[in-house]
Every structure is written in structure tokens, then in C-alpha cells.
Design a binder for these strands. Structure first.
Lengths: 342, 342
DNA sequence: GCAATGTGGTTAAACGTTTCACCTTTATAG
DNA sequence: CTATAAAGGTGAAACGTTTAACCACATTGC
């Protein structure tokens, strides 16, 4: 099963390799008969161009990478959010004739592969402005799109949701149900993060309703199932004034519901819970989850789209910041305070 | 930000490019002083070898692909199983200095990229022996590992779990709790699939307990949340003899529990449910799920390991079939029949 | 004192493409 | 009938590596 080269094709078709190349790339001037003949030979030999050789000439590799930070606390694999994102990116890439490299990155990891492999561009998920990783990436000078990374004055393309709006919508929904003692369970608010924005939205909603903001209600934590589970049992269950919680992700919301359940508190009879992301299981939880929907797949395809523009279009354009729309989805996990059990 | 080549390094260090190449690859004979000098220049120029050029010579690309079939019913992104698998593969790849290409494949999709990119090998997830995809892959003559693909007499490496044992363990557990009317909710049993094996295990357990096998209790369906939800409501709820169900995945089990719940049946008070996979949320469901645990991450790393052997080791070795151990994990979703509510 | 051996290094071919400059033949214009 | 253009195609350099063959010199053994 020898691997044929353009030379073999040229020989068999009785033309020069330049002509074969022209046929393949639909460039130059070749008669229709010759084209047909060459095509036939290509078919017969099952010839495929060697991309390595091609890349050597025209630079473009049609290869992009998704960089996902790996931390001890949050491995990729316990948040289906990433899966949906990857799925969207892969889909977008397929449409743009790109291939996707999946790279997990620990802080301090070497990024040299980006140059070595001549990647056309990268998509970076969830880095902080002041992280080492961010520093390293900015020195790379490669087309790049950031996702879920709040970067203040950064001239890279970004795809995000309006997290502030998300925090606001969630909180407002709870307020509209009559809740006034509302906990925000989110991640670190420093570094201008996603969770900082949500917190701003939370405060805004409280403010509009003239509800006093309470520091102890705005919890900074890892947004994981286990952390949420613990928090539900220790922080919430011991303070019976609290009637509602905004949780930073559906995954954590699930942990929260379970944590409450295990100390005898039920959702939504005793406490209302609202999640974030609208992951695949939100509609199948008992109770179904009220949550902030975002189209994660679209987020992924959009990122690829932006990257594609950077790679193949005009010499330069200013950085774009795209916001994917979000939406409140009401499920069974939130309830009017008047209909709750004491 | 010019990209330096080996030539630039050679010039600046005052040696030939062959010598630089030797330094980089620790081959040939170079004095320690020269090595030091070249290294220094490489450092100064921030030189990185161009892999495209390198691949042109020595073939190996250190690039593998994960091929995941995309069907209308089962998109990658609604089964976290894939995420954990990808995570494991990525981890294994990192340890073996490989990069992973993520490819979603629709039946009939072109596989030419495997040759074009000179992939070192591929990992294929969940294909059937008689599918077009399988046919195409076998004609590829590329190192290959199949996962969750039951292939009878196939001389490729495979990583699986013992699905028959899985079906057996699950069923036996239910039997040991006193259940005798046990439904198996699985996927298509033709084509020697994963679900066929589980079904065999199910039958074996019934047999040992001298329970009559009933065709209508062995349901072939898409193993999705929604299908399970529907089944719970229509098939199970209408036949009150049934007291327990083996579900083909944790995801489907969740749909099942929800479906039952929505018609007023509770798990495990009215029906026992056992899942499969032990996904991240199994311990956080209400009730926590009894399930068959498999170490999915390990499955992924193992697959990479096998692929690595094929690529870099001995000229040839017979195909290996690896089984990753599984284990029954008892949660709250199964209960002794004597303690159930009528 | 000379062959053999070892050490440190160079030259040039090869990998499989793309592309630019150039060549030949035929058609077209004046 | 010649000058020009168009059509169809070719040759060879270039992309950035690796590597086999080779060379020059120093050391060693006898």
C-alpha cells in the first residue's frame, strides 16, 4: 500500500508535476481534457496530497488548537459545559475546513508547540488577565480568540456572554418571586472574572429592589459539585433566613440541591435554586432546574468564525467582542415565597 | 517577529546546519563546546524546529486523532462519557508526547485527512462491525485502536469493558434484592454491540436465578435521556409488575428516574433503577444512583498506550484486547423489594 | 613510520509540494 | 504576412528539515 506522490500522478498522466499541482488547486491554465486525465489518475492511484509538504510552502496548516486550562480543582472532565463547547468548536471547524487540536494546559506548560506545528490559530478558554498563561499567550503573536475570559483592555477577539446580565436576570427572577434573602454562590471575583461580572449583576438587582447587600451572602468558592454540596449543608442550612440561591453553574446547582436534600431541605419547597448554563440535564433533574440558558454550541462555532476571519481575511481588523445571548429558563426549582413551606 | 530557521541558527553559531540538527536531536558527533554554543544561539533566537519540514523527512507526525461518530440521535455533546474519555486520551497523549485531533464523523464522511495529515494513528469510538465507517477505517492501514466497539474477529487493538459482566452484575444485584420482574433498557443488540453483550449478561443472571426471560422486558431503544424518559412513562409505568430496571447509561438512568417521577412513581420506593458508567453526577442525584462503575479516564489513557506501542515499538505484534475493570457501586436508587412501597 | 581508528564536523541529496518565470503552439488583429 | 496575444504547459527553485557519505585531522598500535 505505497503512498503515491504528485510525481507518480504526473508520470502516469504524462504531464509535469506543476500541471498536476495546478489541477489539484484549480490554478494556472490547464485544458479540460488534461484536467480530466489527471483527475482520473488521481482517482486510480488514490492519491492524496501530503499536507506536511504543502505546509512547508504556503504556511497555512488549517490546524487550530483549543487550549483548556487544567487545574487540580477543575478538571475538564467534570463539567459537561466543556463538552458542549468542544462539540461546537469541532462543528465550526468542520465547516471551515479546519482541524482541532485538543490541548489541556497546566499553568506553566510550554506553548512552543503552537509555533512548531505552525498552528493557524488558537482558541483559549477561561484564563485570567493576570495569569502566567495569559502572559505567555500574548507573546505568541498568533491569531487567537478568548472565551469566557474577561480581559479588560485586551485587543484580542473574545466570545462571551453578558455575565452581568446573567447575574442580574437570575437575581431579579428570585426577587420577583418575593425572595429577599438571596445567596450568590459563585467563583473568585478578583481578576475581573466571569464571576465578578455576575456579582455586579446580582448587586444591581438587589439595589433596584432596595435590598441591602450582605457580604456573607456573596460566597466566593470553587464552583464545583462538591463545593456546592458542602456549602448547601454548612452555609445555607444553618441560616434559615435564606430562601433562595443563585448558583454559578448547573453542575454546582445539582450539588447544591443534593446537599440541601441530604439535610432534609427540599427544593423548591424550602429553598429556591437557580443554576447557570442550561446544561443537558437541567430539564431532567428532580426538580427541573431554573437556569440561565446560553447556547454553548453556538459560542464554540462563533469562536471558530472569528478565528477564521483573523486567519484568512483582511490584513488587519480591530478586535471584536461578541456576546452570545442568554435567557432565563424557568423550571421547578424556584418558587414564589408565599407558596413555600415554612 | 521573524521565525528563525535552522539555517539562522547555523549561521549565528558558525557551524553547518547538519551540526545544529545533530545538537537538536542528540545524534552524530558534536563536541561539548559546540553543543553549548549552538544551544545558546537557539535560546537567543528563540528558535523552534518546524514540524512540517521535519515530518517531510521522518514521517512521524506525533499526531493522532480521536474519531467520534456523530449521529442525529446521539450528538457528542449530550453524553459526558465522551468528555471523560477525551480527557483521558488527552492526558495519555500528553504523557506520550502526542497531540490529539478531535474529529466528529458522520457516516460517509471522508477519511482522507488521515493520510493527508500523515496521522501516526487513530482512536475510534463506538463503531459497528458492519458500518460503512468501519469498512473505510479498515482500508486505511494506519495504527488504530477501537473503543467501545464490539468487533468479533478483528485484528485491531481494542479497549473495552466486559459488558457482559456489567449486565450480569447489574441484574444480579437487583435479583439479590428480591426483584424478579426486571427490565433491561438498552440499545440495539444487533451487530454484536455493547448492548448485545449486556443483554447476554442480563440473561445469564436471570437464568441462574431461574427467572423466565421475557422478550418485552428487554427493550431496544436509543440510550438517551429523552428516550428513557418516554420509556419510563409509557412502558414501565403501565406495567405495575415491573419492580426494577437496568438502564444502559447513567444519563439515560437520569431520564428514567425523571420520567417515573413525573408520573408519580418514586425511586427507589416504587421502582429500583440501576445505571451504567458511574458518571460524575451519579453521586449527586436524588437519589444517588446505583451503577456500574468503569474508569473512563483510564480507558482513554490505555487506548493511547496501545496506540503508542503500535506506532513506535516492534515491527509487528498481534492485536491486543484490553478490558478495563468494572465494579458495582451501590447507591440509593435500588432497594430490597421487601422494603418497597406497594 | 604508517595503517588503523577515533573525533568533530561538512556537503549535498532527499522529503513532496507550490509557484514563478519561461517556452511553444495556435489564434487573432492589423 | 507579420506582430501580438492567448492557451497550455514545463523546469526549477524554494520551503526547513534529516541523514548518509565523506573529509580532515589527531591519536594510537605495532
Amino acid at each position: 500500500m505505497k503512498k503515491y506522490t504528485i510525481k507518480d500522478v504526473a508520470n502516469k498522466a504524462g504531464v509535469s508535476i506543476a500541471t498536476v499541482s495546478n489541477v489539484i488547486n484549480a490554478k494556472g491554465r490547464v485544458s479540460t481534457q488534461t484536467i480530466a486525465r489527471v483527475r482520473k489518475v488521481i482517482e486510480e492511484l488514490q492519491y492524496y496530497p501530503n499536507l506536511a509538504a504543502r505546509n512547508l510552502k504556503d504556511k497555512k496548516t488549517h490546524l487550530i488548537a483549543v487550549l483548556v486550562p487544567l487545574t487540580d480543582q477543575s478538571n475538564i472532565h467534570d463539567n459537561p459545559f466543556y463538552l458542549e463547547l468542544l462539540s461546537g468548536i469541532e462543528k465550526g471547524a468542520r465547516q471551515s475546513d479546519l482541524h482541532v487540536l485538543l490541548i489541556g494546559l497546566k499553568e506553566g506548560d510550554n506553548l512552543s508547540f503552537i509555533h512548531e506545528r505552525n498552528l493557524d490559530g488558537i482558541i483559549v478558554v477561561g484564563v485570567h488577565e493576570h495569569s502566567l498563561l495569559y502572559e505567555n499567550i500574548t507573546q505568541l503573536h498568533v491569531p487567537c480568540v478568548f472565551m469566557d475570559s474577561y480581559l479588560n483592555q485586551c485587543n484580542y477577539d473574545q466570545v462571551n456572554i453578558d455575565d452581568q446580565l446573567g447575574g442580574y436576570l437570575a437575581t431579579k427572577h428570585l426577587i420577583s418571586l418575593g425572595h429577599r434573602h438571596i445567596v450568590l454562590f459563585g467563583g473568585e471575583r478578583k481578576n475581573n472574572s466571569v464571576y465578578h461580572s455576575r456579582w455586579l449583576g446580582y448587586r444591581k438587582a438587589l439595589n433596584e429592589a432596595r435590598i441591602q447587600y450582605r457580604e456573607k451572602y456573596a460566597i466566593e468558592s470553587q464552583v464545583t459539585m462538591e463545593a456546592a454540596y458542602q456549602c448547601a449543608q454548612h452555609c445555607i442550612a444553618t441560616d434559615r433566613e435564606i430562601t433562595a440561591v443563585c448558583v454559578g453553574s448547573d453542575v454546582a446547582a445539582m450539588g447544591f440541591v443534593k446537599g440541601l436534600h441530604d439535610v432534609g431541605l427540599h427544593v423548591p419547597e424550602h429553598i429556591s435554586v437557580i443554576g447557570f448554563d442550561d446544561l443537558f440535564f437541567a430539564h431532567y433533574m428532580v426538580p427541573t432546574l431554573t437556569t440561565i440558558y446560553q447556547n454553548i454550541t453556538e459560542k464554540g462555532t462563533k469562536a471558530v468564525e472569528l478565528l477564521f476571519e483573523q486567519i484568512y481575511e483582511e490584513r488587519f481588523r480591530p478586535a471584536k467582542k461578541v456576546f452570545v445571548p442568554i435567557q432565563l429558563k424557568i423550571g421547578q426549582s424556584t418558587r414564589e415565597i408565599s407558596k413555600m413551606e415554612k
